[in-house]
């Protein structure tokens, strides 16, 4: 179990490298996605390992937040773009 946890954490850390290097914004946003799914997996394994069922609720919350974060960011960034260009969205 501990090995599984460490490997999942390692896969998360690999994503961090892409945040530092990532040439475009999309690459950096992708890491949120990665952190969401591997964070959830880590919490699920941890709840089994520590016999703490409450961590499942934490995992559910993280999953919902990870769903909302890209949507919110895209909305926000799209809005600031529209402001700078004073143009509506392309149909």
């Amino acid at each position: 179990m501990t090995l599984v946890l460490l490997l999942l954490l390692f896969s998360m850390l690999l994503g961090l490298w892409r945040v530092i290097k990532g040439p475009t914004l999309l690459d950096r946003l992708l890491t949120i996605q990665l952190f969401g799914s591997s964070g959830v997996a880590i919490l699920l394994v941890l709840s089994k390992l520590l016999a703490l069922p409450a961590l499942l609720d934490v995992a559910l919350l993280i999953a919902i937040l990870a769903a909302a974060a890209p949507a919110a960011l895209v909305q926000r960034l799209g809005k600031s773009r529209a402001d700078t260009r004073s143009l509506g969205k392309t149909p």
Binding site: T24, L26, V40, L44, L56, L60, A66, A67, A71, V74
Partner: peptide, 26 residues
């Protein structure tokens, strides 16, 4: 509960993949 969490993650993956792709493409 874990199955529910998986469904949420899967749905969010499919939707945010689409959102991010469209945003980046535009």
């Amino acid at each position: 509960l874990m199955l529910l969490i998986w469904l949420v993650v899967m749905g969010s993956g499919a939707v945010s993949c689409q959102l991010l792709a469209r945003f980046s493409h535009e």
